[in-house]
């Protein structure tokens, strides 16, 4: 059973990695660099906090 679980762990890791890479590529090609790097100090905190409160 354990060899199977090991392989499963590798596969899952690869899936997570690929999803991040794919989404990264898609995001970088969809939006311009100016939009992506437009955040200012204090702003992203506001976003995550709302996120926390809602979630």
């Amino acid at each position: 059973m354990w060899p199977l679980i090991e392989t499963g762990a590798w596969v899952l890791s690869a899936l997570f990695a690929l999803h991040m890479l794919w989404d990264w590529y898609r995001t970088d090609t969809t939006y311009s660099e100016d939009v992506l790097t437009s955040s200012r100090e204090g702003e992203i905190e506001a976003m995550t906090e709302q996120h926390k409160l809602n979630g």
Binding site: M20, W24, T27, L36
Partner: peptide, 16 residues
């Protein structure tokens, strides 16, 4: 590295 993900609002490049 100072980029924020437009949908998830996370510092995605720094995370990767």
């Amino acid at each position: 590295f100072g980029a924020v993900h437009p949908t998830y609002r996370t510092p995605y490049r720094a995370i990767i």
